[in-house]
Design a protein around this nucleic acid. Sequence first.
RNA 1: GGGAGCAUAGCUCAGCUGGUUUAGAGCAUCUGCCUUACAAGCAGAGGGUCCGCGGUUCGAACCCGUGUGCUCCCACCA
Length: 902
Amino acid sequence: MELSKNYIPNEVESRWYEHWLGKGYFNSKPDEREAYTVVIPPPNVTGVLHMGHCLNNTIQDILIRRARMHGKNACWVPGTDHASIATEAKVVGMLRERGITKSSLSRDEFLMYAWEWKEKYGGIILQQLKKLGCSLDWDRTSFTMDSDYYKAVIEIFIKLHREGIIYRGLRMVNWDPVSKTALSDEEVIFKDIDSKLYFVSYPLTDGSGSITVATTRPETILGDVAICVNPTDTRYTSLVGKEVIVPIINRKIPVIADEYVDAEFGTGALKITPAHDKNDNELGKKHNLKAINTLDAEGKFTAEELADDTPSEQVLSYNGVDRFVLRKKIVEDIAALNQIQKVEDYKGQVGTSERTGAIIESRLSLQWFMDMKKFIGQHPAIVSSVATDKIKFHPAKLKNTYSYWMDNIKDWCISRQLWWGQQIPAWYDGEGNYVVAATREEAFEQFKSQNEKIKIDEIFQDEDCLDTWFSSWLWPMEVFKGVSSPGNPEFNYYYPTTTLVTGQDIIFFWVARMIMAGYAFKDKQPFADVYFTGMVRDKQGRKMSKQLGNSPDLLGLIDQYGADATRFGILIASPAGNDILFDESALEQGRNFNNKLWNALKLIKMWEGRQTFGVNRESSGVSEVVKSKTHDSRLTTHDFAVTWFGNRLSQVKMEVDEMMGQFRLSEALKTIYSLIWDDFCSWYLEWIKPGFEQPISTSVYQKTVVYFEELMQLLHPFMPFITEEIYHLLQENTDDLCVKQVQAIPSSNKSILGEGELLKKVISALRDARNKNQIKPKDPIKLHIQADTISGYQSIENILMKQVNAESITYTKESIANTIVVAVEKDKFFIETEKQLDSTTLKAELLKDLEHQQKFLESVLKKLSNERFVQNAKPEVIALEQKKQADAQARIKTIEESLKNL
RNA sequence: GGGAGCAUAGCUCAGCUGGUUUAGAGCAUCUGCCUUACAAGCAGAGGGUCCGCGGUUCGAACCCGUGUGCUCCCACCA
């Protein structure tokens, strides 16, 4: 069969993915094996694959594939999140394009459109994961609004409400005026902004002057109910208890005193607007002040609550004006009254909505909350499991972040003024009473026990739905129906899951809450290890964003480089616990690696039909000169290469095992990459390679094929497609690499590994000497070796000759004149060449080396002559220093001799 | 404002218990090669004040202190 010049991934990848699917390799059913369970962090149902997903899911696939090959029952559950705000916003946008406003639709009509949209676009992202090679058990695909899942969420709400953990209350919440919903604290992102500090004066009612207040939010002035100063602030002592007049609205408000006010800031006087600021609200409560709301749900002015003040024409003209326009307007209007003292530039922070980016309003509203302190208090393992590594975080530094958040946890606002999501199971009668129940019928029964006259169609359900995270926190349980069908065999087998792979950015949103849910509802941790990936940035370190246009088209990249190369590229650039700086050149490196593998395959395939049977006809592939030599080292030469690589392979397999155990995936991949490229291709294959059109011994050939297969098996979790392809092209294999079980690792022989390293060093040193002396690669040399023990070199003569293009090797006890001298450890090599040698350059080189060695020796001697070192250091450390000394002295002697030779 | 982390080659990072030939890798750079698997390649090389300063120690990239510079998390001084 003719193999193409370069590896072409596309056809190979889709072919193998189909094959694996057809064989059902990704499907898992409970059996006697140990389970290795991973649940995917469910992407937004309407999402498309981006670099973050790519990194995330590549890592999960590596872990899953490796577990599958190591005798585990690997189960990786796919699915999507209904993502209430994000999805609802998309649906609203889609409807707007069609000329339909949300407000013109009933809830049911809207949900119909939303489901339609979900069916059409939902799960595109799952198809994209297939392109990446993810070995997910597709039969288990879940969605956070599946009917059982929906029921589970409702059940949990009812349970927590019954336990008094969930309550309804009028609180200041983070209000997103764009999506017109409350948000949890976690959904608010604070951003630095340039704003202005306005100094507004409020005249005293007694005409004795005025108080100036500094504010960044003049648009809320119409909601002012007091001016507050610090009681110790002597500037204002005499004014406390007096009244001032709010500009424009002419409301009379008191001047009060409270420790809260910082006398140093602004003018030391603070205006109190309890309806629009959390702190003001607290102060308002404390001082028994009314909250006057002046903004509606969209952040537009409303005069509704100003009735007591009999609003003027001017005030009424603000009706419906957006908060930011209103700010300008009010400033102008107050300026017209000469009550703006000055305006300063001010750098402040504002909260923005994580989803819509809108600036958050603090707004007093009736919402549902979870009492987190109480909840966590009931399940101490939520905090301790992470501290004690019952749940291990990678990187461990995030443990601090976690425990700090837990220690300072605030109540969780779980209601959202949205329709897309689990509707809150609270039911109201017309009089403001409510009950919590799963169905209208159950709610009706509850109401009836209090009020016999009530009719079932008189009660109505809460319009709001639950925070998305209130459903996703059940994910590791409910994908196995652990909540809706507790104690079922699947759940018992797969839960707790093994490893969670997710982004650091959702540690509070999701990871922490899954841990809470796990302990609270099943009394078990949801997973044993959490691998946190960093954020994917561009190579300048900027976040990927649509605005910057620095977010690469992932499917395009997969098309261009192949999925294996993409996986390689993203992982190789991704040290554990750090952000990754994405650079397309890493994918190029991955593609080149594919090609390297492909070419190694081509080389080995060339030998397939050229095997000789029996050792006598074995060819070393080197020149006739070798064959005429007195002793025959040909057999041992290949034996050495084969034995050495076998040992090297074992050694690296051990290292990889160790790294994988510590979740150092990027390093593991680098290690395998170097094993394949350097040890296998550059050294081993070159060592066993027969000469042009020469045969190769069957035993070496077969051993090489096995090695290559084992390398492919080691690499398979990282680059599944090309490894499977090569596995099948190497020889007729009836099984598939994807599920081929990994054998126990034989131990490796240190002395053979050491010989291999020495050989590499000698070859490199001799090649370097050739290079420096400008001996052309084609010019042969005669090599003389001076070593204490020559047997080691005799067994690898053929490799050495071929690798440094020597036409002969002889052994000598003395230095040889007019040669280039190379010293490696204690052995000396004399390169004899036809070429005229430039003795000055040689001399300079040697002198430079001599100086270096002498300096080194000096430092070693200094150490050894230090009595305290000899007394305190461990014996092996001293022995090592002594060896350094001996080696350095030997080398200095060699160099000095060589200098005499010149 | 509070906390955590980081600083090692041009870039991205290893360096795990303080001692492993006076610091390693990949990428990039430079030199020489179209050597019959591979120029998406081969062979080789150069490149470091381990952020500054001080300390502990026989010995420090590693431990301690301090300064500087970044990054992240938490926290709504209007």
